[in-house]
Design a protein around this nucleic acid. Structure first.
Lengths: 381, 381
DNA sequence: AAAGGATCGTAGAGCGATCTACACACCCCA
DNA sequence: TGGGGTGTGTAGATCGCTCTACGATCCTTT
């Protein structure tokens, strides 16, 4: 069963019994609680308990907690002491019912992807001094972005960062009507949500110029499969980063009168490895491979190394400049589009929205090629 | 300000206005809603709306959603149609108030750490067919584990996976009274929470045997700083994986009458790099380095490569067998303790708890050294 | 035909917060 | 002395959902 459709998300599996909570008053139930182990545990204290302990009203405690107006120093001290004594912690779920959940949600298509990790790192840093907690909804295998985004929205997060999701922009706009959304990595324009993109055109152009200047002529572009079937919202403006990089490759090759060679693989580097092996077995293998991202490039490098070849045989350039790219054993040329910066910016944009901004913002991050050992002039021959 | 203490977690920063939601009835408020942009958006439909649309009671809709007993086929069809028409999605926050949130929380000390990523991958896979959604609470820089764990508990997650957290076990037990907890990676025993560990003793012993058999005598152990100050709960049983690995190193070196050399660094590989540079500059540098984990080992390798040396000069063995370790350009010998398996197991243990299990379980994952190019017999001389 | 048992559905009381509206002091000044 | 502030604190409705208790049918059975 797909657990995330409107129905099944909501539905408990038959074999999973619901968790019971002992409420303010003791629940009189003929049945023993299913999770007997936790039955006797002390009830966590509520705002009510704090109020009683401090000898004030619930509302007063709430005010102190929210740092709201109308609290005397004496009362604050009193209430804070009571909170301390009881070890009280506000229940986020209850707060979310009326106010905010102080939670920002990140939809991450691949947890293992180092570029996405950099984004999370940047955002974490930016949120450090705020009361907002970040949560990440990772995509399961074969799961679509909308599942994770919906799931974040269902959890009443105060803002959502969606990373290059393959979803219908108008669907995303509907989400953005309720919850501020920042979309990273797709070249959409919307006046409902904010966007952050790298300069994919410039980045790809730098790669192509670099390779051509080094004397490469047989250049293969290896990238991930575009969405299939072609989504109805695909277009120039809404293109995914990889699509743009590919377009630049094609333009440049065409302009130079060179033969184009584009290979598509899955996200994961192992397919890039296999694809590269096949390329190397060709009668006239490419002298350079422009990989759509570093994960693929790493896979490409492994096939090249296994074949006993090096950068003079086949040069490789990636995209994203993930941390391992600068490792001397790898030394992968790559385009830096600072994921950390993107994450920081995403957090900032969300906080701005929460502070009241209403106009959409499009933010673009510079792209800079970092040439390393993996790209070198081809051997004469 | 630290946003996560009992107080500040709860407190909105002064400049952040709360988000208002239009409830079931229109909220009559003299003030305009602060987030004016979203003011005109259609109110998301509630269970009440669905009930009206389907011509049944709220309770009936709830039953259908929860797949509970006492629903006729006719009613189910009717309600499901209404849900479909309205695009209704249940609010998790509201459900969490009484029942379950269908959310499992993972506390991840370092988002960028590939070993932890493997754990998440394994868990994601295991949860794919369940109604549970995983959320990850990443640790901010200099943040302690308890902050993230608390934050998950505050969000009423139905279960928590804590990865090798540096927290007081008795504190964790208190959390576990309310919410099932699985702790990965620390050799604690508790009858309140479940644990999953690798066989760190065996793994470390394999490393040491391997290096010694290859003829290494000057072996340095490089690992992360132990918690400082020594936490009060530290002891043999509750030791962290790194501490155990270090202990094994010391035992083996002592048994062989070899001089011990232990270097401590931060988590991040760049310090390992610097530390290795310093080691290489010694009059008698080590011929082998046993790194406490692969992240550190990668940093070690980079320093060795930069110095123009290779495995015949200084061998390196890591721990965790992260994906990049098998890359032919890196080819790092490492101990495999299947993070994916750990993640899968963690999810399984949590689901079992939710299904009613009450006794604690300790699960141990095998450790197997994968010897690769990075460890080789030292050069003569 | 009445009793008993399923089956199906509803009413209504929470869950733990937030936030508006209002009451009560107290003080100042005319 | 009375009229307004201003500063503090409380009452109480509300958010959207869950779940127990119970009522209403309908079908068997005796």
């Amino acid at each position: 069963m797909n657990p995330f459709s409107a129905f099944t998300l909501a539905r408990a599996p038959v074999e999973c019994q619901p968790i019971y909570r002992i409420g303010n008053r003791v629940v009189t139930s003929a049945e023993p609680r299913p999770d007997g182990a936790r039955a006797g545990s002390p009830r966590p204290s509520t705002i009510e308990d704090v109020a009683r302990e401090a000898g004030v009203s619930r509302a007063a405690v709430s005010k102190v907690i929210r740092n709201a107006y109308g609290v005397s120093d004496r009362m604050r001290t009193q209430v804070e002491a009571a909170i301390e004594r009881l070890g009280y912690r506000p229940r986020v779920a209850a707060r979310a019912m009326r106010g905010a959940s102080f939670t920002l949600g990140f939809e991450i298509p691949q947890v293992g992807n180092d570029f996405l990790t950099m984004i999370v790192d940047g955002a974490t840093e930016a949120l450090a001094e705020t009361p907002y907690q970040m949560i990440i909804a990772p995509l399961g295998r074969d799961q679509k972005s909308d599942v994770a985004i919906n799931s974040l929205a269902d959890r009443q997060v105060d803002g959502i960062v969606a990373i290059s999701p393959r979803v219908d922009p108008s669907w995303l706009e509907r989400i953005a009507e309720r919850t501020p959304v920042v979309m990273i990595g797709r070249h959409d324009r919307s006046d409902r949500y904010d966007t952050i993109t790298g300069d994919d055109r410039s980045g790809a152009e730098q790669v192509m110029s670099h390779l051509v200047e080094q004397g490469h002529r047989r250049i293969t572009h290896l990238t991930i499969h575009p969405s299939r079937p072609e989504p109805p919202w695909a277009g120039q403006a809404g293109d995914e980063p990889h699509v743009i990089r590919t377009a630049v490759y094609r333009e440049r090759m065409a302009a130079l009168g060179l033969e184009q060679s584009v290979v598509h693989t899955m996200f994961d580097g192992s397919e890039a490895h296999d694809a590269t092996r096949a390329l190397l077995a060709l009668p006239e293998p490419p002298t350079a491979i422009f990989a759509g991202n570093d994960t693929l490039a790493i896979g490409v490098l492994s096939a090249i190394a296994e074949a006993g070849l090096d950068e003079r045989d086949v040069s490789v350039v990636g995209y994203d400049n993930i941390p391992i790219a600068r490792h001397p054993l790898v030394s992968l040329s790559s385009v830096d589009q600072s994921g950390v910066l993107m994450g920081r910016e995403a957090a900032r944009l969300l906080l701005e929205r929460l502070a009241g901004r209403t106009e959409a913002v499009q933010s673009q991050i510079e792209a800079t090629l970092r040439a390393r050992r993996s790209s070198a002039p081809p051997r004469r021959g």
